[in-house]
Structure formats: structure tokens, C-alpha cells
Design a protein around this nucleic acid. Sequence first.
DNA 1: ATATTATGTCAGTCTTGTTGACATTCCAAG
DNA 2: CTTGGAATGTCAACAAGACTGACATAATAT
Lengths: 168, 168
Amino acid sequence: MAESGSVGPGGERLLYLTDEQLRKGIEAMFFAYRGFTSDPDRILSDQGYGRAHHRAMHFINRSPGITVNDLLNTLGVTKQSLNRVLRTMIADGLVESRVGCGDRRKRNLYLTERGMALEADLSFVQRARMRAAYRRAGPEAVAGFRTVLEAMMDPEVLVRYNAMKAKG
Amino acid sequence: MAESGSVGPGGERLLYLTDEQLRKGIEAMFFAYRGFTSDPDRILSDQGYGRAHHRAMHFINRSPGITVNDLLNTLGVTKQSLNRVLRTMIADGLVESRVGCGDRRKRNLYLTERGMALEADLSFVQRARMRAAYRRAGPEAVAGFRTVLEAMMDPEVLVRYNAMKAKG
DNA sequence: ATATTATGTCAGTCTTGTTGACATTCCAAG
DNA sequence: CTTGGAATGTCAACAAGACTGACATAATAT
């Protein structure tokens, strides 16, 4: 399974990556991402929500009091798109939107009790799959997994990702 | 970066995975997948196509002559959904649909010259990102990356994934 | 002859992305 | 102090792409 590697003139590691290896990696991302989202998706559709609601809840849970602007930059969607899912979740009592103390244009977002409960359900099944995969793969594989994913992000996104909470 | 591991009574490896580590992995998947799709998405939207067209072209390219049924099972979408994108690509001369030789109910799908050219463009930018990530991460990380992704797939999907071409 | 399978089509709905227009709030330059 | 612009958030309309359900056609299997 280990790819062939050697050391180049600059001392950097060189990998001889065939198109086939790369395409296989592309397919692995596609199929794995489907598995990754499938368990929360089932719960969500029962409740009349979608993946967009899950993502919003995840990041509000991670950063309670986050502003709308910060959240839409994190999610990489337009404010209008985010606003739709926020509106329904606020109406349903999953999310609370408080006017900012310093700057009253801003809205600080929080999960309500009910919001936290649903987020916990979604997170539970998703973490369960992740945990199972990590256990089967082993610690070295997990480290490599994270390293490659981080190398695949856009640089600005990587900064945001690293800024988020303590490193796992 | 390496997680703490130890050996349990059955000899299996045990990982002590905190919720924080797992959530960080979830976020890594989310952000990395965005990067993973962003380059082809740009090309596609210029041409009036979407991610769905890319996925179909990818798998038709991988398995020339694949039937509609096999393709929709691979993609995990309904035939109506697949049919919409196939219809436009056939109309635009990117995909050819030939009546099956043995079983004339079946349609075998092929990329045309133009289809191959577009697929090559899309694949090129996606492979470039994957290659860069692999190079930066190194061979051991790549092996771990693939191992975890495979462990995250649904079992039936993993079978399909393994059946596809030679292993990278 | 009949049932089943493979495919394609039409119609309608839902989620979630988009742009455009607009209201509110804040801040800074006159 | 006022006024103009920037930042922020909301509403409306639209498009892509997923879904279900119903139905038609052709070929194969029983």
C-alpha cells in the first residue's frame, strides 16, 4: 500500500503518483463523504431539516455567540442562503439570535436547549462513524488522514480551521 | 499529532478518542471536501454544467460502456436524477448512448471525443490538488488517508469501490 | 402469453445554492 | 450635527439538482 518515495535534489520527498492512484483517491473522497453524511442526513430528513441546518448548528455549537457574518464565511455560502436556514431554526426554537451588545447591527447566535439536543443527536451518529473508522484504521492512519485533508484545504480555509478551538 | 494508542485484552488496538478529536476530524472532512470540489466546479459553471455532470463523466470514463443502471447505483442517485444530466450531455455531444449488444434493453454509455476532453480538464485540476496534497503529506500519510476513508464507507459501497479498476 | 427487468419521460416537490433590492445601524468626513 | 458610505441582516425570486410517483416502451425470462 505504501507509495514509492525518494529524496530529490532539494531534499524534499518525491512521490511517483500515477493517475490511477490519484483517481482512486478522488473516488475514495467521493464515497467516504457519502458515508460521512448519511447518518445525520437520515435524522435530519425525519425532522424536516437538511444538511445546511446541520452545518449551521455544528458551528454555532462550536462557537456560541458567533455572528452571522462569521458563520457564513465559515460555511462558505451567501448570507441569503444562510439566512433561510437560520430563520426556520429560530422560528422552531432551535437557535436564538441576540442583538449584539457593542455593535447593534450584529446578531450573536446561540443554540437553545432544543437546538443543543438535536445537535447532540446528529453529532453522536457522525462521531460514532468517525470513531469506528479511526479505531479500525489505527493511530498512524488517523494522523495521516488529518494531514492529507489539511493539505487539501484552501489556505484561507486552513487558517480558519486551525483557529477553531484547540487542536485535536 | 499521533493519538494515544494501547493494546486491549483481545490484542486489538484501542484509541482514546475525545469528542474534540472527532469533531476536528468532522470539520477536516467538511473543509477538505470543499477544496476537493472547488477547482472542477469553477470549470463546470463556466460551461453550464454542475457537479452531477462531472460525477457521471468520471465514472463513464472509468468504465466505458457502463449501463445506466450500474451508473446510477454507483452514484447513489435515482434514475430520474441521472437521466436529466445524461440527457443534456447526450444532446450536447459529450456522451454517447449505444443500445446493448446482448441485451437490447440496456444502454451502454461512452464519452465522445469532446466528453473525454472536458473530463480530462476536470480531472486534471482535481488530480493536481490531490497530487499537491499527497506530496506535502508524504507517503505514510497518504496510506493512512486512504485507510481511514475506506473505513468510513458503507460496506456495500466499499465493495463497489474495490471492484473498480486496479487498486491504487 | 405473461411477468419481470431496464430504461426513459412527465409532473410535482424539496433543499439549498444563487442574485437583486432594500432596511437598519454604525462610523467618519465634512 | 449631518450626511454619505460601509457593514450587516432580511425579503423575494430564481436555478440546479436531488427526490417521489405514475406511466410508457421494449426486451427478456418464465
